[in-house]
Structure formats: C-alpha cells, structure tokens
Design a binder for these strands. Structure first.
Lengths: 95, 95, 95, 95
DNA sequence: AACGCATAAGTAAGAC
DNA sequence: GTCTTACTTATGCGTT
C-alpha cells in the first residue's frame, strides 16, 4: 500500500536526506499510529453496534445517548472536583 | 434548551415503569458502551503519546500528521473507487 | 444539562448591563448571522431541488452523489498535495 | 479538471452507453450542484468571518452561538405552531 | 415510517 | 495566549 509515502516529516536538521535509521523510525511511527487509529475506528463501530442492538430491543437510542452523555458530564464534574481538592491539599501543604 | 429530553429511554410500551429485566438489560447496555468509550479514550491517548514521542525524536509532528491524513485520504479514495465500481456493476446487472 | 449557559455574551467588562452601542452592535451581528444562515439554507434547498430534478430525468441520485463526492475528494487531495508541497518548500527554506 | 468523471450516474435504462444528450444533461447537473456547493461554502466562510469580527469586538462567541441556536429553536417552535394552526383551521373548514 | 447516512455544529486539542 | 485544525456529537435527509 502506498508505502513509499515515507517522504518528509523528518528531523528538522536534515530535511532532504533522511538517514536510514530515521527512515526506519519514521515507518515505525506511522505504522503504530495507523494501527492505533484502526483500533479506535473498530471500537467506534462496536459502540454503534451496541446502540443498534439496544434499538432492536426497543430502547430509544436518542435518549440512551443522552443518558450516557449526562453520566459523562457527572464524571467530569467529579474529576474536576477531585482536581480542585488536590489543588487545595497541595496549597495547604505549602503553608 | 436541548433539555426537552424527550424521554422514553425504554421499550415504548411501558414508559414509566421499566420491568426488572428491562432495567437489567439497560444497565448492561450502558455499561458496555461506557467500557468501550473508555477503551477508545485510552487509544486516543496512546496516539497522542506516539506523536509526543516522535516529536521528542526530532520529527515535525505537523508534517507527520499531514502524512498520516494524506495516506488516509488515499485509502478513502481507493475505497470510494471500489464502491463506485460495485455501484456500476450493480447498475449493469439491472439491465 | 448543556443548560449551564455560561453567559456573558458581551464585552467582558460589563456583563449584566450592555451599553447601548454594544446592544446595537450585538443586534447587528445576530442579524447578519441569521441572514447568512437563511441564505445557506436556501442554497441547500436549491441543491436538493437539482437532485430531485435529476431523479425525475431518470438519473440515479445515489450514483450522482457519489460522483460529486468523488470529484470533491479529488479536489481535496490536490489541495492537500499543494499544501504538502508548500510545507516541504518551507522546510527546505529553513535549512 | 478531472472532467472525464462523467461516467455512470445514468438513466437506469441504458447504463453503459449514455446518449449524447444525457451526457450533456449530466454535465449540467453536476456543474450546477458543484456551483451551488461552492456558494454554500462561501457563505459558511462569511459566517465564520462575522463570528471572528464579533470576537474582535469583545463578544463571547460561544455564548453568541448559543443565542443564535436558541433563537433558531424558538423559530422552529413557532413554525410548528403555525403548522398546527393551519391544520386546525383546515380541520375546521372541513366541518 | 423507521433506519442508516452524511453533512453540520460544537467542542477540545495543538501550533504559533 | 490566541488561533486554527481535528474530532465528536447531533440533527436532518434520503432511502427502504
């Protein structure tokens, strides 16, 4: 697959002639990123499947999504609270 | 505003009192979704890490991202072409 | 939920009492935006009409949409390539 | 520009050999759609500009967007009311 | 009339 | 710290 795309994207010091080892490293990096993105995409598809399944069971997916996002908000608020707490504890430690 | 949450997150027949089994099923669904979203979030963090690592090695992350997205475009175009081909074959089949 | 509308749609210095001129300016801005969005909506409707007309003439709108999107992809890729080229030229300039 | 893309997307009756006039018609259709989409894109850019200008004047664009979307919701509700009213009037006429 | 899709809005991250 | 760019979510549209 368009694997010769390994141009550019190089250590800024030597733009036009990448050393062999840099080339190798670059390929690895690209490969890892693309692999991770593939995984992410797969999980997104899995999530879609779960919603589809829920719908088939008679659940209202729109409401379902709302529930999930509300719970996420709650969690975020809780995390923020913890961060605030850390901050305060830290501040107290500095007295 | 978006708060008119048209509820009914449940099998349409019994809006306000979910049966026990429906409740269980609902919990399972939410749990699975949240677990998957957690995984997805983790992978996104991993990707961030790879970029950070690449940057530390002297690679230009902006160019790196461009390379990745360009390769993605290539892939998309190839997929699009295959879909087009399918479409045409299908159209021909309908003669 | 998203109802915590963190207001202050106004010059930060005087949150609750907008000066008369700021009020005027605000009205103008909203008006311009809404007018532009109206135009945009109109054009979207026009596009819909063209597809409907095409369908009436016997064209397969699904294939039609694919063609349009493929041509758009082509254009995007060409633009991407030019951006890449700029990036490289720029990188070379920095040697 | 990739102008040879005028393949397929054809009246279902004669998939592989588009008549000359159908080809012409197809080109016109694609051209009109692309032109309209270009206009739409331009307007979207204009809207962005207005928000940017508002920001420069000290307005909080996030809140601004909220205002616009709220007003849009209001309008939609009003339109629905009018539709309902029409419906009722119509129903009354049928007595 | 409901389902999936595709665009569009809003949000969050990264670069300069 | 601002600003753009990318991603995620949400709504609407066409289709079956």
């Amino acid at each position: 697959m368009a694997d010769d795309a390994g141009f550019g994207a190089l250590p800024s010091a030597a733009p036009q002639s990448l050393t062999q080892s840099a080339r190798e490293k670059l390929k690895q990096i690209i490969s890892r990123i693309e692999s991770l993105e593939e995984d992410k995409k797969q999980i997104a598809a899995d999530i879609k499947d779960v919603y589809a399944e829920a719908k088939a069971l008679g659940f209202d997916t729109k409401a379902l999504r709302k529930v999930v996002s509300l719970r996420k908000l709650d969690r975020q608020e809780r995390e923020e609270m913890e961060m605030m707490l850390d901050l305060y504890l830290q501040a107290l430690g500095e007295i």
